[in-house]
């Protein structure tokens, strides 16, 4: 359980101490990467609660989402249409949906535990 948190801290420290700066026009792609990773993480957590977690689906889901999002952002930049919004919207909906499901499951588990006591 602690390992992911340590990973998060490690990533933050690595990012702040390596002093990497990316030009403003590429920040969209980084944002896409962040959204894809976050939504995949929540999707994985939700699947774990449903006991249907599959590593293959997890990994392939992450990479296809990421590639699709970045392709949309790239095309959007070159076509002059903000296509990346589609990806932001999809990821956003997925994140909220998964958080809602996880919250419900946690609440259910908690009330079940209370009833059993």
């Amino acid at each position: 359980m602690w390992l992911p948190l340590i990973g998060l801290l490690l990533g933050l420290l690595l990012g702040f101490f390596t002093n990497v700066n990316i030009p403003e026009q590429y920040s969209i792609y980084l944002g896409m990467g962040f959204l894809a990773a976050f939504s995949t993480l929540l999707g994985g957590a939700r699947a774990q609660f449903d006991n249907e977690f599959d590593e293959k689906i997890f990994i392939t889901g992450f990479f296809t989402n990421l590639i699709l999002a970045i392709t949309l952002a790239f095309l959007g930049v070159h076509l002059g249409v903000d296509l990346y919004l589609a990806a932001v919207f999809a990821f956003g909906v997925r994140i909220f949906h998964n958080i809602a499901l996880i919250r419900r499951m946690l609440l259910k588990n908690w009330s079940n535990k209370k009833e059993n006591e």
Binding site: G11, L30, L41
Partner: peptide, 16 residues
């Protein structure tokens, strides 16, 4: 896998 993802999230947040 989770650790990999959270590390990436942390890195991206820091860089952004």
């Amino acid at each position: 896998l989770y650790t990999f993802l959270t590390t990436m999230i942390g890195l991206l947040i820091a860089v952004l």
